[in-house]
Design a protein around this nucleic acid. Structure first.
Lengths: 148, 148
DNA sequence: ACATACCCTACTATTTCTATAGAGTTCATG
DNA sequence: CATGAACTCTATAGAAATAGTAGGGTATGT
């Protein structure tokens, strides 16, 4: 399950991706535009900044902007920062592996075998999709809708 | 994230799948064998029974056994019973769809587009893997390990 | 009758999630 | 250099979910 934190983060990042190059954007604007509680979003963006995904400018004319091109920020990275490992179970996590205490033989655990497959499928999608990719797909949907 | 409940359930079911046809198995035996708190497992198995995956017999010589062939019980079903929808976000869930209140236009939401992909990938794996499938894979690993 | 073993409800402790509050810091501008 | 805009950071708090525990009830084989 994706937390609201991660969902809000991704929504805000997608706006920032779209507006990239047009100068900093206010937290308040992002919050208003995406229907996110402002104070909550403040915390989230700060965390993303501290992990190097965003940069900010204080004072008048300030705001947030992407620290790197939208092509280089992936969904997987964002989710890992805010929600932790992608793996559905710690014994198949790449970034936060932990054995199950109750497991007799991890290698031949049926649950683990299947959950490993799930982890890999999730990781392939989320680590293979950048903000730019998602933004492009959104554009395509919007255009199709508009034309129809 | 898979809850311990679902993990324990799947572990117990895999044992029952393996022992299918050899009569009922005691909760206590399952608990001991898989390192699961007995009372907790009791609750879990009951829930699975109430959803039609298991049958039971009371009194001496009693215990639990699968209600249908291991080929017809899928990981997806078990996880849905114990943890709810597979979808990482309610707006892409098949069984428990809910709109995000804050979303302006769901159809062109980038987060949703990507999470839909994730849901489908998870569902394909979990709804495509039966207890029998997993048991077979476990057997294969064990044999390989033994031979080597 | 009696022991065995599942059935069921309720409760509790801990943790996680979703925020909110409020004071502090930096910066542009007049 | 004062002022206000805007981000920074820590602490706190209420609600919900998670992971169990307790304890009695019910059916069954001998």
């Amino acid at each position: 399950m994706l937390s609201k934190k991660a969902k809000y983060a991704l929504k805000a990042l997608l706006v920032l991706a779209r507006e990239q190059g047009h100068g900093p954007i206010l937290i308040g604007d992002l919050a208003l535009r995406e229907g996110i509680p402002k104070k909550f979003l403040e915390m989230i963006l700060l965390e993303l900044k501290n992990h190097g995904l965003l940069q900010s400018k204080k004072g008048k004319g300030g705001g947030y902007f992407l620290a790197k091109p939208a092509e280089q920020i992936f969904f997987g990275e964002v989710v890992r920062i805010l929600d932790g490992p992608l793996a559905p179970i710690p014994c198949v996590s790449q970034m936060a592996y932990m054995t199950c205490e109750e497991c007799q033989d991890e290698e031949s655990c049926g649950v683990r075998l299947v959950m490993k497959q799930v982890r890999d499928a999730i990781a392939e999608i989320l680590d293979g999709t950048s903000l730019a990719d998602a933004a492009k797909r959104v554009e395509r949907v919007r255009r199709r809708k508009h034309t129809a």
